[in-house]
Design a protein around this nucleic acid. Structure first.
Lengths: 269, 269
DNA sequence: AACTAAAATTTCTTTATATGGAATTTATTG
DNA sequence: CAATAAATTCCATATAAAGAAATTTTAGTT
């Protein structure tokens, strides 16, 4: 997989191993396969894994390694960029109480949108992002599309270029259709694309702008298609937009995104 | 803080730094302080942080470091021990739909209980565990207490010994009162202790047993004290216990806990 | 249940890499 | 705008990580 020219430090190699452990399925992964995939010798992988386990990042069950619970606990504190999750919590709760549907908070992360939080409604919703911590390419799903639509043009184009193949892979729109949707989203300020990819389900996404007017996040609703028919839709749009505005107003103007614009794209591995 | 005799590998030192970054508050932490707390020189910390950042575990905003979103995404896959979270999802959804209260899934992790998932009800609930990924000492909170009460005696005693001071620190029961509650919990099979620590709130916890009969997890409900009055309480208990039994029955009998009993306590740092 | 093949550990020597002091640059503060 | 403190770079040295080979453990097979 990973190929050439990587004279990595031992630390980066170990972090790569950690990532591989994370990519393995729930049953865990064997040392041999780890070493092979990481491109290092078995003893090397072994020692790194021992350290990882000693620090509680990885656990060894039988002869297989998997991510440990401590790791989960530690990371629950991550992604709190600007305290967004905490800021958004009351917003999500209000939306959930008002709409009684499933509510998502997505944030942009490079070429992806990450589900930072969600509150479940009464119907089990199958979403692209999956659970909290899940991610989708920007452009797939209503909230994700809402963010993409409102990025500055240059960034948007860069993301489109990168993501179109991935969207096609997942049976989504081709580039032309995507551009039509983006245009529409930008014009109306919200997304209600019903792709039919998830039968019977529908969603609605609106962008959240920070103090610099950047689309850093999105709020979205996932529900039964039935519950977004024309008579209810406008009301839901209004409520979502209002909450998105409230949330946007809480984002600290003296914050990170613009001070390090380069990072936003370069951080993609 | 960390004192003597720790001739750690460079990897462990770096992981320690990562932990420290996680422990810092949302604003991030400076290199100087990291180096100091970790007990290493600044250049050393600097290089480790650069690697951590290059791998997307940490991000540098201005001159401060904090956990990155990629880390959050990676860790969302952790703690899936035995796929418990996925197994429990439908259980939580059913409970949430039936009871319309906030539902928690806790798992035991050493001396603590970790909130592996939760579904929010209509009332904002303040809980000890906080959000998903939060942890509490075993014994604090209804679900956590339910787990502790049903551990094998030797383990239970070890946990009590370790946790009593921590419980006292948080203004909770002293050892005698705790033992009374544990006895009661074991007798009735559920916990409805109302500590008054969170005014107006009440909770109810039941243990989840795996195929070996070990209390590995708990389901709990958090709601307004009003909603757990005598006329409703027994029904809620019955529903919770039924779902806990369902969940327990899904836990794979050929699994980890008993094969490595030593780990359960020794994994605490 | 014994046998065989494969993976996991351990050992050991070489080599590569991490380390902290000192120097330089960049921020922060009065 | 100076003065101070933190961040970053450089560098010689010590140290710890690397992989080959050997050993033990595990898992698969008849």
């Amino acid at each position: 997989m990973i190929d050439s020219a990587e004279p990595l430090s031992s630390l980066r190699r170990a972090l790569g191993l950690l990532r591989l452990v994370g990519a393995a399925d729930a049953g865990g992964i064997r040392l041999k396969d780890l070493a092979e995939q990481a491109g290092c010798s078995q003893p090397t992988a072994h020692r790194a894994l021992q350290d990882l386990a000693a620090e509680g990042f990885v656990e060894q069950v039988g002869k297989r390694y998997r991510l440990a619970l401590d790791f989960f606990v530690l990371a629950a504190r991550a992604g709190h960029a600007d305290g967004l999750r905490d800021l958004a919590k009351p917003v999500l709760l209000r939306l959930s109480a008002t709409l009684t549907d499933t509510i998502f908070l997505l944030v942009r992360n490079g070429y992806e949108a990450v589900c930072l939080d969600r509150i479940e409604g009464p119907f089990p919703i199958r979403s692209f992002t999956g659970d909290i911590g899940g991610k989708v390419p920007l452009g797939l799903g209503q909230g994700s599309l809402a963010i993409l639509a409102h990025l500055p043009e240059a960034e948007r184009e860069a993301v489109i270029r990168f993501n179109v193949p991935r969207l096609l892979d997942r049976g989504f729109l081709d580039e032309a259709a995507l551009r039509v949707e983006l245009e529409k989203a930008r014009a109306q300020g919200w997304v209600n694309l019903n792709t039919g990819l998830i039968p019977g389900m529908a969603g609605l996404g609106v962008p959240v702008f920070d103090a610099q007017g950047r689309a850093v996040a999105a709020l979205s609703v996932g529900t039964l298609a039935d519950r977004l028919r024309p008579e209810r839709l406008p009301g839901v749009v209004a409520i979502l937009k209002a909450e998105a505005a409230t949330l946007g107003a809480m984002l600290n103007p003296f914050d990170t995104a613009l001070r390090h614009p380069s990072r936003s794209l370069s951080a993609v591995s």
